[in-house]
Design a protein around this nucleic acid. Structure first.
Lengths: 184, 184
DNA sequence: CGCAGTCTTGTACAGTCGTACTAGTACTTC
DNA sequence: GAAGTACTAGTACGACTGTACAAGACTGCG
């Protein structure tokens, strides 16, 4: 009476991806530091062993999730570019996009979780810098190099404050600030 | 042969304080999420049981540490006020103070760790908002209410970027930005 | 002095963690 | 078909966790 073990069809790449996206969701919910193999496996609907089979260590699993998340953020930023080009009021349009981004607080927290983790762990720094550079590269051709860097800092700080206080952005004040920071 | 148990002199309040400051150090090193009873006790040079005797739960211990840290930050911000009043160049002096603050990266990370934790846990929100308000209250009488809020966001964002990329602030660019944001 | 209450300390316990490992199943290549 | 490989799945283990608790030691009051 050998115990039957029903086994799902093989799909290595699909499993890898499923684990990575499950990792994003777990990280967004509980944070990087409280993310575990078991939580990710459960979220993906896969056995625990799958996590260690595809990712040598927990850090690798988390990094894979963060990589997928930053890639998605990069794609979103690229889609912002079109919007900003067709808008006649650039600061206002930019703030509108940021406000829309902040609608999903979980995802926004994920970004700052990555920032903080990168501040501690150099291995995560390229990922976090990718986010910063993606944002800066979006603004640079439109605001100039110096203003772009400063506006990124301003908006990152404002988003962080919004997350901390669980409030909305002060849109008018920020658009006015961007206009001041933008020469011409 | 009764086992002798040498016991230190009694000092409840001293122990409470020692545990709280030990908690700060542990949090600064490994982050809020990875802070444990045992690590705090070891750092304070006290037995494990002391932590649970003085703090009902780990969250309380961490919160006590964070409270001490935010109180210290508040005191430092108040000392900034004098410097800003005697400076003839307010934006430049402000950036100088922020750069000095960033010298101790561990402590700066602690602040952002608190921010992120507050974004997830409303119980920590008052503490985090205390930091934000302390900073804003420092600038408000000097820059005006609207500019103060925006400058706090700018500097918080710039500090976060400096932590993430492990670089220094771009002092000249930030002073120029503050000058632009300051109507006066 | 006795004694109650407060503080100190070491240990215990149940649970969770990362990771390793065995065994079974499907697929590929001869 | 057989054999070898890549994948799946479940379990095991030692380490570490938060918290509970029992027992000793000190302090101050009667």
């Amino acid at each position: 009476m050998t115990a039957r073990r029903p086994q799902r069809s093989r799909d290595p790449e699909g499993r890898r991806a499923a684990l990575a996206t499950a990792a994003i969701e777990v990280i967004a919910e509980v944070g990087i530091a409280r993310t575990t193999h078991r939580a990710v496996a459960a979220r993906a609907g896969l056995p625990l062993g799958a996590t260690t089979y595809y990712f040598p260590s927990l850090d690798d699993l988390v990094a894979a999730g963060l990589a997928v998340a930053t890639e998605a953020l990069g794609a979103e930023l690229r889609s912002w570019a079109e919007r900003l080009d067709t808008a006649e009021d650039l600061p206002g349009a930019l703030i509108g996009l940021v406000e829309a981004y902040l609608t999903d607080r979980r995802r926004a927290r994920l970004e700052y979780d990555l920032y903080l983790a990168a501040a501690r762990d150099p291995a995560l720094r390229p990922l976090a810098e990718g986010c910063l550079h993606g944002f800066r590269d979006l603004l640079e051709p439109r605001l100039g190099p110096e203003a772009a860097r400063v506006v990124v800092a301003l908006l990152d700080g404002a988003m962080l404050q919004a997350l901390v206080t669980d409030t909305d952005l002060d849109g008018p004040a920020l658009t006015a600030a961007i206009r001041r920071l933008h020469p011409r």
